[in-house]
Computed example of a mutant assay.
Amino acid sequence: MSSNRVDEVLTFPAWPQHGPEERAGLLRALDQEGWWRNGGSEVDSFEEEFAALHGAPRALATTNGTHALELALSVLGVGPGDEVLVPSFTFISCSLAVQRTGAVPVPVDVRPDTYCLDVDAAARVITPRTKVVMPVHLAGQFADMDALAELSSATGVTVLQDAAHAHAARWRGRRVGELGSIAAFSFQNGKLMTAGEGGALLLPDEESYQEAYLRHGCGRPPKDRLYEHRTQGSNYRMTEFSAAVLRAQLSRLEEQVAVREERSRHLMAALARIPGVVPQGRDERGDVKSHYMAMVRLPGTTAERRLALVDRLISHGVPAFVAFPPVYRTSGFWEGPHTGDVDDLAKRCPVAEEIGNDCLWLHHRVLLADTPVLDRLAEVFASAVAAG
Rank of each mutant, 00 (worst) to 15 (best):
N4K: 04
R5G: 15
L10Q: 06
P16R: 15
E21P: 02
A24R: 14
R37I: 01
S41Q: 14
A52K: 15
G65I: 00
L69K: 11
E70P: 00
S74F: 09
V78F: 10
V78N: 04
Q99K: 03
A103T: 03
V108C: 14
V110R: 09
T114K: 03
D118R: 01
V119H: 04
T127N: 11
P128G: 13
F142P: 06
D146Y: 11
L148G: 04
V159K: 05
D162I: 03
A166S: 15
A168N: 15
R170G: 00
G177Y: 05
L179H: 00
A184M: 10
A184T: 08
A184P: 07
G198Q: 06
L202I: 04
S208N: 02
Y213C: 10
G217T: 09
R225G: 09
L226E: 14
A243I: 03
R247S: 13
A248M: 12
R260D: 11
H266K: 03
A269Q: 13
A269L: 11
G276K: 01
V278C: 06
R282C: 03
S290A: 15
A294L: 12
T302P: 08
L313G: 05
A323L: 07
P325L: 11
S331A: 15
F333H: 08
H338I: 05
H338R: 02
D341K: 02
D344M: 09
D358I: 12
W361M: 07
L377H: 05
S383W: 06
A384H: 09
A386R: 14
G388A: 13
